[in-house]
Design a protein around this nucleic acid. Sequence first.
DNA 1: CAAGATTGACTGGTCAATCTTA
DNA 2: TAAGATTGACCAGTCAATCTTG
Lengths: 153, 153
Amino acid sequence: VTTVDPALALWLALGEAHAELSSHAQAHAARHGLSLAELAVLGALDRHGPLLLGELQRHTSVSSGGATFLVDRLEAKGLVRRKSCPDDRRATYAVLTAKGGRRIGRILREHTVVIRRACSALTATRQRSATALLRALANSQPGADTTRRSPTD
Amino acid sequence: VTTVDPALALWLALGEAHAELSSHAQAHAARHGLSLAELAVLGALDRHGPLLLGELQRHTSVSSGGATFLVDRLEAKGLVRRKSCPDDRRATYAVLTAKGGRRIGRILREHTVVIRRACSALTATRQRSATALLRALANSQPGADTTRRSPTD
DNA sequence: CAAGATTGACTGGTCAATCTTA
DNA sequence: TAAGATTGACCAGTCAATCTTG
């Protein structure tokens, strides 16, 4: 009766679903003393190995200052280390420390379980349907793209 | 590359889709000098009429302090007014001012267009499918409690 | 005591400007 | 000149404590 437009309904549902899953993911990250953004950084380093801060920025959809900030904090926690790039003196790598590597492995495995449970209302098949629809929604947007995503992520 | 868990893929896609739509919605709100949360408040008041701050809080998923904060700002902008509840002296209504009512009408109409365009990659039918899936995802969560869980994971 | 609202301290980031090196 | 990173100012909210009324 209220919301007539299907697009509007979709936007609303998207917000609620995102909030719901976020709260689970965030709660789990917090149990390990991490923000979701920090977890994303650690995850990116785990997947891709050492990354320049700029690359990290693109992988995690965070601002330039945000990347510096996050690496600062993870460095303070002893999970990440900076390493200057030999080929380009402006550039800096973020690298997992041994401790960081160990911790992030455990955490990511747990994280998968958390997400899986949070999505358990949908069968795997419907999860895939939803994923496909959401990708179509996200990828075909006109413009204003500040962050380049690697298509094979 | 790791063959991803369908739930994980869904979580990722959800994040990207949400970020994408958000950026459009946010840009539009910003064109009118509003944050998304402020827009949500105005929208709720437009749909439901005067609302207690607590109700507003539930409708917009902000914290208690956030509701006060948002109403403060909208009041400062002359779009909303507080009105004390006659039946309960603790409670306060938020009410659209005449100016607020006029502006929000225009803005919400525009907003629908923005969202519709941002969703145009999906047909209305697929939008409805996506909506249904997302609602199922959001509504059937197991204990989304903030209380501490046993470290059985 | 509980429910509603408010305040103040705090935070996780963004944004714009700056510094350094290519 | 531009690209990479960093810094500092700023901001939209949250959170916990407080005040008031039921």
